[in-house]
């Protein structure tokens, strides 16, 4: 079986749209609310989750045949927690500015349901390489939704994008004010709901 055979590419592609972890499986919502009021943390969070899901998937896939099935969740949790701690320590040592910016979000990756979901549903049954692709795919699918939501929230909530002002001053002079509601968590719910709506309207197979 080739490295990029059709089946492997499916593991990478389907989580992007057809089985997107956020909009279709509705996983990882909590962090999607927390980190999307600005674009920069959303991007970093998306990337961190992608890396950690991929690595955790590979490790669990490598040892999947030795894991006693009754304590498999605990083993998965230990692997994820160890990886997150490692990433956080390495960031603190070599990219201190990034780790300061992310602050609590790095720790929050442990609680992201996508991680446990993919470990349990995919890595426990598949070989390391497809598991790796599945992790990358799911991480990017998650990151994509985060970025979409964060762009809308930052533009309308703060009038900036990646902290650069995008709404010209003349608009403010004409009486426009930033929408404070956009910065609140409920607005992320509405935006995710709109994304889900658009996606389901386009893809009939997702409609229930």
């Amino acid at each position: 079986m080739g490295l990029f055979s059709k089946k492997n590419m499916e593991a990478l592609n389907t989580p992007l749209l057809k089985e997107n972890p956020v909009t279709v499986q509705v996983l990882g919502i909590c962090s999607a609310l927390a980190v999307t009021s600005k674009l920069a943390p959303a991007i970093v969070m998306g990337l961190s989750v992608t890396i950690i899901v991929a690595m955790a998937n590979v490790i669990i896939s490598l040892i999947r045949n030795t894991i006693p099935s009754r304590i498999r969740i605990i083993i998965q949790l230990v692997v994820v927690a160890a990886l997150v701690t490692l990433v956080s320590e390495v960031l603190k040592a070599f990219a201190y500015d990034v780790s300061v910016q992310l602050s609590v979000y790095v720790g929050l990756i442990i609680t992201n349901c996508i991680l446990m979901g993919r470990l349990e549903a995919f890595a426990m049954q598949n070989k390391p390489w497809p598991s790796f692709l599945d992790g990358i795919g799911n991480g990017l699918g998650y990151a994509m939704i985060l970025v979409i939501v964060a762009i809308v929230r930052e533009i309308f909530g703060s009038g900036t994008l990646l902290d650069f002002p995008v709404i010209p001053q003349c608009v403010y002079d004409a009486g426009y004010i930033n929408n404070g509601l956009m910065l609140m968590a409920p607005m992320a719910f509405f935006l995710i709901a709109i994304v889900i709506w658009v996606q389901r309207a386009k893809d009939k197979s997702l409609q229930e």
């Binding site: 980190v35 009021s37 600005k38 943390p41 602050s103 609590v104 909530g157 703060s158 404070g180 910065l183």
Partner: peptide, 8 residues
């Protein structure tokens, strides 16, 4: 700050 609400 350690973890104040972004944007607020």
């Amino acid at each position: 700050h350690a973890s104040e609400t972004p944007g607020l």
